[in-house]
Design a protein around this nucleic acid. Sequence first.
DNA 1: AATATCAGGTTAGTATTACTATTGCATAAG
DNA 2: CTTATGCAATAGTAATACTAACCTGATATT
Lengths: 235, 235
Amino acid sequence: MRTQENFSNIQLKINDKVFTKDPCSSDLGKKIIQHSIKLIDELGFESFTFAKLADDIQCTEAAIYRYFDNKYRLLTYHLTWYWTWLEYRITLATANIESPEQRLKIVLHLLTSPLEQEPGIPQVDEAALYRIVIAESQKVYLTKHVDEENKKGLFLSYKRLCKKAAGIVSEISPDYRFPTALISTVVESSYDQRYFARHLPSLTEIPVDQEDGITEYLTELVFKAINNSPKHKTP
Amino acid sequence: MRTQENFSNIQLKINDKVFTKDPCSSDLGKKIIQHSIKLIDELGFESFTFAKLADDIQCTEAAIYRYFDNKYRLLTYHLTWYWTWLEYRITLATANIESPEQRLKIVLHLLTSPLEQEPGIPQVDEAALYRIVIAESQKVYLTKHVDEENKKGLFLSYKRLCKKAAGIVSEISPDYRFPTALISTVVESSYDQRYFARHLPSLTEIPVDQEDGITEYLTELVFKAINNSPKHKTP
DNA sequence: AATATCAGGTTAGTATTACTATTGCATAAG
DNA sequence: CTTATGCAATAGTAATACTAACCTGATATT
């Protein structure tokens, strides 16, 4: 994490089962992405509708249905984008670092910290997207259609992410029995704890304003769980 | 957990902000409770509607609105019942046990295990209710109305539960900085991991059929986090 | 030049959902 | 007896989720 990377013109490859028509392929599609981040963040996913989005963009509701089958797919698109982007940044940040302990520290930091605004990707409001991840991510799989959606591969990006991090855990402690469970616990917990800090503060000791409190709490939890103390400080 | 307790005629006191009219006060109210557990479990919360419930019970939709303002309140009622019941059982199960380590083990077992069918409470389908807890519990607070609902005290039962367990953690390790965060992490994670085991098994090492795998994983996690090995086996 | 194709939408619907205003009928109190 | 109060039904409305059918302008084909 030494240099300021340049991500201009980067385009993440998103599983094409998520959309019926690639939103990156047209101006309207891009507007759907931008404005839906804004609206889902403002209204919450329950109150968010394609009618309101169409109104905001000044297009018709049916036009949006050309791109996404329903609002769950649109939400899945945003989360897939987030998880894919996260995996890419993890790959970069851990490249050429020998110590698996150091790599795990970096990964835990990335997994549990808010997205920062990326100058190379001006079309995405990262802060709003991260609030969506925190408040809405569970809603894409906590439905009666999980098993179908899963078969279509809609959650592959999340699984890859967890497997990658779990792999480092196993590198450090080959005998630890629950590496993937531990990582998925940590990721979900980072969202929960951030939400609790803001809305149900009696469920956590970490204050809202303490940016890296959650990362600290969870990093300690992981290293104790796998019986290894962190050996280096984060930069 | 030595004897078979008898809970006949028990009635949990539920915060009356949850309902507009106490469902325990009439036959229709009790039917609403019973049938809504069945229907939410079968259909999932998104597809569950008061119209379908009215149809199932053979009453009118408006009659149901007499008891609950909307379906979120009805869900909150079920979760409040679950958390209150859990707290009661925790109180019983830890009474007169000196060792805080032993008490914590008991609490963790109760917090992370499925509800068992209670002969004293025949009107509730505990298995269906627990599936609802797993798949739908987050949906009561992951909304734009959290702060209002929280002010009304709709989440007090959950908070009490976590505080109670966190208190035991602090008894064991007064210096541990995140007792409540740890407990809320564990509770939420027990739901997540059970859901993953069934629907997204590549996110966890614990198999669906291994009943106490999740309790084992989380108990180990907690005792390592607070720097204390469990000293006794669970019964 | 005429025509076929197709990307990229719009129009105009329907069935369902969430919720409410009003009415009616028992039963209990004064 | 009659009046209030509890308890539920009737009959709506506005919003939501989704679909079928059609239009329109640009490019490709013969």
